[in-house]
């Protein structure tokens, strides 16, 4: 069992249900892109007594569906800004919940959203936990990364 795995599953299911009314389930599949699709990667960074980041990697098509539900629009009406806002909001909520498990004081950054072919990479950080979920046939991934302390390098 990875650190925070149960909490990631619990918070993610809870957030997607309460905000989007969607049931998401942990997938045993490794996170992979279908046919080279683009990934929208949301990230919030945590600074303070614990330093690291929480990332949400989501296929663009799923992020569009999320935005259309979140902002009550038809999918074709969702703009790039709204898609990024939607994923930013989900990342922020996920990060906020994970932060509550960490030693205080900790501070959450604003979300950053990156369009990428590979998922977001944060140099100087190590992956401590990642969970893949399935929603509408799409895989998305929630990861927790911890800053590598200089002494550990």
């Amino acid at each position: 069992m990875q650190q925070f795995e149960n909490e990631i599953i619990h918070y993610t299911k809870d957030i997607w249900k309460s905000i989007l009314d969607l049931d998401v389930n942990k997938s045993e599949d490794a996170f992979s892109q279908l046919g080279g699709e683009s990934i929208l990667a949301g990230c919030v960074q945590i600074t303070g007594s614990w330093e690291g980041a929480v990332a949400l990697d989501c296929p663009v098509e799923l992020a569009k569906k999320v935005a259309s539900i979140m902002f009550q629009l038809k999918e074709e009406e969702t703009t790039t800004d709204l898609v990024e806002d939607g994923l930013g909001e989900l990342t922020n909520m996920t990060g906020g919940n994970i932060k509550s498990l960490l030693p205080e004081p900790c501070y959450l950054s604003l979300p950053a959203v990156t369009m990428t072919q590979h998922g977001l990479r944060i140099p100087g950080s190590e992956l401590i936990s990642t969970v893949t979920f399935k929603c509408w046939g799409y895989n998305f991934r929630v990861s927790v990364l911890k800053k590598i302390e200089k002494d550990d390098e």
Binding site: C43, Q45, T47, G48, E51, A53, D81, E84, D85, L87, G88, E89, Y107, S109, L110, P111, A112, V113, T114, M115, T116, Q117, L120, R121, I122, P123, G124, S125, K147
Partner: peptide
């Protein structure tokens, strides 16, 4: 105020900051 670890978008990627 505190500073975060840097994040990057390399060539072909784009980075946005919602709510800013």
């Amino acid at each position: 105020s505190v500073l975060s670890t840097p994040i990057f978008a390399m060539e072909g990627q784009s980075q946005q900051f919602p709510f800013t």
